[in-house]
Amino acid sequence: MDNATGERAGYRRSAGSPRGEARRRELLAKITEDVAENGLVDFSLRRAARAAGTTHKVLLYHFESAEDLLRQVVFALRERRIGNALAAIAATPATLTDRVRAAWESLRDEETRLRRVLDQAMGLAMYDPGRYAALGRGASGQYLPTLLEFCPPDWPERRKFEVASMILATLRGFLVDLLTSPDGDGAAAGFEALLRAVEREEAAP
């Protein structure tokens, strides 16, 4: 991937300008679709510029670096995943168990390419944390608020956090299993055990 550190000197950012912000969002949307389609392998400012129909210098006007652009792309794709899950639970009963089941069905059935891109992002964070740690740190920060909202409102905040963290870590493991196993039987079996654990939590005083 390009390292833009040496290239961005002399370029100013468009933050604060409504017109500049609109252009930044337009560019980000085009690049996000390219990443969703083609993954993160060989991602660079020049590849992103081709996808957006512009130049890498223009991208450096709107984004701090290649890493900053990639972080925003991954954020947008995670927001897409969360939006899909929330749409899936909209008509479900308001129990934590039912919401977790509906969210998992959305995750399980989502486009393979979206799942692969988001897993690639986590792989980059583990492989080169010096450059891409933000890709990993940002994941829990995006997902946890939604899972906390799934929990019963009368639960103490600490209990909500503990249960939501358990659900998040477990579902992320199941998603990896779906990508690496031929049939997904392990994820399916494990998910039923997770649901039983969630049901016990809901039944507890």
Rank of each mutant, 00 (worst) to 15 (best):
T146I: 01
G123R: 01
A94I: 09
R78H: 08
R81L: 14
D177W: 14
L27I: 13
A121S: 09
T180K: 00
P182M: 12
R115M: 10
L168K: 06
V73D: 06
R200V: 15
E199P: 14
D68T: 11
R13M: 07
E111G: 13
N3Q: 08
C151D: 14
P93I: 05
A51H: 05
D185I: 11
F191S: 12
R46Q: 07
E7W: 10
F191T: 14
N38G: 13
E67T: 08
T170Y: 02
H56Q: 12
T92V: 12
S65Y: 02
T5P: 00
M126H: 13
Q142M: 03
G53R: 04
A204Q: 15
R12Q: 11
A197Y: 10
A133E: 00
D98E: 11
L40P: 12
G136H: 04
L40D: 11
D177H: 13
R46A: 13
P152Q: 06
A29R: 04
A15G: 12
V176M: 11
D42K: 05
D42Q: 06
S181Y: 15
I31G: 01
A90E: 01
L27S: 05
M1D: 02
E33F: 03
E110Q: 13
T180E: 11
D68N: 11
R13C: 07
K57Y: 11
L45S: 08
R99K: 14
G184T: 14
A133R: 06
D34P: 08
A29T: 03
R24G: 07
M126K: 10
A188S: 15
F63H: 09
E149Q: 09
T170I: 09
M1A: 08
T5F: 09
D98K: 07
I82D: 01
I167W: 00
A48C: 04
G173I: 09
E64K: 10
L194M: 09
A52W: 03
A193V: 15
K30D: 00
L171M: 15
A85T: 08
M166F: 15
V58T: 15
Y143E: 02
A51Q: 00
E162N: 06
F174K: 04
L171R: 05
S165H: 04
T146S: 13
E67I: 04
A49K: 02
I167M: 03
R78T: 11
G141H: 05
A139I: 00
A121V: 08
E111S: 12
E7P: 02
R50L: 10
R25Y: 04
D177R: 05
I167H: 06
A49Q: 04
G53S: 01
D154H: 12
L59E: 06
A88V: 09
V74S: 03
E79S: 10
E110L: 03
P153N: 06
G16L: 02
F150K: 08
E111M: 02
Q142L: 09
A133F: 08
A188Y: 07
D2I: 09
